[in-house]
Amino acid sequence: MSTIRVRAQESGGVVTVRSLMSHPMETGARKDSAGNLIPAHYIETVEAEVGGNTVMTALWGAGISRNPFFQFQFAGSKGDTLKLSWKDNKGESDSTEVEIG
């Protein structure tokens, strides 16, 4: 099961994408209950593709909140398939695909 929930809707030739990503987004500055630093673990890159073409790339850092909500728009059409993916600072990644409605 993907850590990304995404919805993409077209209106007037503009696709609005809304996504929610489950991720701890740890900065590396917080301490656990024993006083030890919690290692940094955050998404670095979010990328959206339609038809093999990149329509959006976001470069993130440790300042983004836990389980981030992300919204963006691009020129597109109904029926196309949107692929949304992320990669974090530990080399982990996830992606999901959704049909634009």
Rank of each mutant, 00 (worst) to 15 (best):
G35L: 04
A62N: 12
A75C: 03
Q71I: 09
V14D: 06
G79A: 04
V50D: 00
P24F: 11
R7V: 04
G12K: 07
L59F: 13
G91P: 02
D94M: 03
R30L: 09
N67H: 14
E99Q: 14
F69V: 09
T81H: 05
E99R: 15
F69I: 07
E44R: 15
R5K: 14
T27E: 13
H23A: 03
A62P: 10
G91C: 06
L20Q: 13
G79E: 07
T81W: 06
G28M: 08
S95K: 11
E97S: 15
G52K: 03
S22L: 06
R7L: 08
G13M: 09
T81F: 06
K83H: 08
T57I: 10
A40C: 10
F72W: 14
G101W: 11
V15E: 02
G76H: 02
V98P: 00
H23V: 00
G61Q: 10
A34H: 14
L82H: 00
E44W: 04
S11D: 12
R30C: 03
S22G: 07
M21T: 02
L20T: 11
A40K: 10
M21W: 13
T96H: 05
T81V: 12
K87A: 08
I38W: 12
A34C: 08
T45Y: 04
A58Y: 10
G28W: 12
G52P: 01
Q9W: 08
E99G: 11
Q73S: 14
Q71Y: 05
M21L: 15
S33D: 13
S85F: 03
G101Q: 15
P68V: 01
T57G: 03
K87E: 11
I4F: 07
I64T: 13
I64S: 11
V55H: 03
